[in-house]
Design a protein around this nucleic acid. Structure first.
Lengths: 142, 142
DNA sequence: CTACATGCAAACCGTTTGCACCCTA
DNA sequence: TAGGGTGCAAACGGTTTGCATGTAG
């Protein structure tokens, strides 16, 4: 029984071939993926699956906190990444759309301050940084 | 000639009744609005306009940097706000979806550091903070 | 008077859903 | 063998587009 099997079972989900394959793909990918990415990868691996199953599975898994939903500016599609305890931010190239993970989060103490100031209960934040990668910043931006 | 007229002309756009009315609505609103919000407000003011015109106009204006596009987590719709030089972040209530503007940005110096570390040319960031507002945090969250 | 703007309706595209069938536990 | 999972096709909802008409400059 693989790690992936354990993760699925522990979440109270039935362990089907499709779910295992989907979670494997998301876990292995070091970058966020879309439902379509996962679907195409499954096809490439000759694992029979329907796009709607991919959507349903990824929705279920994100409710179970196995994976996390992400959205980037100017991208109409929803991305997903494996749920790591340690949260991450990304630097996205506005020209080639390359996604670069950033280490560390600059907002830890800021959230506490804000909580006191606003009387909200802060549960988290979304931070993405945009710019041009070393390759793209050389060429005429825009 | 109103401020709004000047803004539109300065962007090289033709100054139609619809554009003026749309930009007025976005400028006056202190919170981000959706295309539908604007459309409904125009109807309320008895200004004849088509939804597709609203979308087209808001797209054009955001290309001209008159307004800015925003997206919030869990919201399928695109929001727009008037383009102010000073950028802003929002604290969004996960339960009632209320949007609270936050003063100040905690990321000024961080971007410089990151630029040096990654060799990217950073153009900006998106930061939204999520939590529960004073009212909603009292009731059972979720 | 002409190039840009608008209205209308239809297309689009990512995502969701209803329902019958399938298969894990 | 029962209840969750899947495939299929159709619907959905926000947004975009093609085309004919209108209007600002």
């Amino acid at each position: 029984m693989s790690d992936t099997d354990v993760l699925i079972k522990r979440s109270g989900l039935r362990n089907t071939k499709q779910r295992k394959a989907i979670l494997d793909i998301i876990r292995i990918s070091e970058l966020p993926v879309t439902a379509e990415d996962v679907y195409l990868e499954l096809k490439k691996q000759h694992i029979p699956v329907n796009l709607s199953t991919v959507y349903r599975t990824m929705e279920t898994m994100s409710e179970c906190m196995l994976i996390k939903k992400l959205r980037f500016l100017g991208e109409e599609k929803t991305f997903f990444e494996y749920f790591k305890a340690m949260h991450r931010h990304y630097l996205v190239c506005l020209r080639c759309k390359k996604i670069l993970p950033i280490s560390g989060c600059p907002l830890k103490s800021y959230e506490k301050t804000l909580e006191e100031k606003t009387d909200y209960s802060i549960s988290g934040h979304r931070l993405d940084i945009y710019g041009y990668c070393p390759q793209c910043k050389e060429t005429d931006n825009i």
